[in-house]
């Protein structure tokens, strides 16, 4: 069976609470027991509790596969990019370095690149991926466009990402504020602080929230 074509994966990092439920549940999967295939990143813990779950974005033209010298990374017909195939993978780390989203990880013990395959064992049987099922904040959501539309009036899905010159189109969708102009998430621009139309106070505790200035001393 294939992943039903009306079911999509949506990520909303603004909802993420860093609980790692997704990572812990991933490691319970029957096909890779004890080892998670996804991870959680703190953006910058010293100033914020912002975290983001890193699952595979399942690119239309996967960079990881393009740079693989052993042709070990395959995509299913329904668009799921799989972990490297065991006999082919030479553990060269090309994919780990090349993926713009930082998804693949080298499992040193297995000498094999492993990454999220959107719980193919579950999704191809009509179930939701494990991480999106357990996620307590629903930062990871699996469902139809109609469902996300009804549930998330404040945001909308985008699936094109710009990394400098490279434009990447993904199967997995990222929720961005609805009012914004973004058609493409310009990742490298954001890295350089060039996010348009937004001022973000990172040190909120020091930005005038205390009753008097002496308070902070």
């Amino acid at each position: 069976m294939a992943v039903p074509s009306n079911q999509h994966f949506f990520i909303d990092p603004s909802r993420c609470i860093g609980c790692q439920s997704c990572v812990q549940a991933c490691s319970e999967c029957d096909t890779h027991k004890g080892t998670p295939m996804i991870h959680l990143e703190y953006v910058e813990r010293s100033i914020s509790t912002q975290t983001t779950p890193v699952i595979c974005m399942h690119c239309e033209s996967p960079t990881c596969a393009q740079v693989c010298p052993a042709d070990a990374i395959k995509k299913t017909e329904d668009g799921v990019v799989q972990s490297a195939r065991k006999p082919r993978c030479i553990a060269c780390n090309n994919c780990v370095l090349a993926c713009p989203f930082g998804v693949p990880k080298m499992n040193a013990g297995w000498e094999l690149m492993t990454k999220c395959d959107m719980c193919y064992d579950r999704t191809s049987e009509g179930k939701k991926p494990m991480c999106a099922t357990v996620c307590p904040s629903q930062a990871l959501f699996f469902g139809t466009f109609a469902e996300i539309e009804a549930l998330r009036p404040r945001s909308r899905p985008v699936n094109e990402f710009r990394f400098g010159e490279q434009l990447v189109k993904t199967k997995v969708l990222m929720m961005v504020p609805r009012g914004g102009l973004t058609e493409v998430v310009d990742v490298t621009a954001a890295m350089h602080g060039a996010t348009p139309q937004r001022t973000v106070h990172l040190d909120l505790m020091m930005s005038g929230v205390f009753a008097n200035a002496a308070e902070g001393k």
Binding site: C19, Q20, S21, V23, Q24, A25, E28, K128, M130, T133, V134, C135, P136, Q138
Partner: peptide, 22 residues
Amino acid sequence: IGFEPWEEFPFNRGMLCPKGVK
């Protein structure tokens, strides 16, 4: 030996925190 989400239960509809998972 493990768990499976219980999506019919209305309060959490399959959601769990890491403590519940492990």
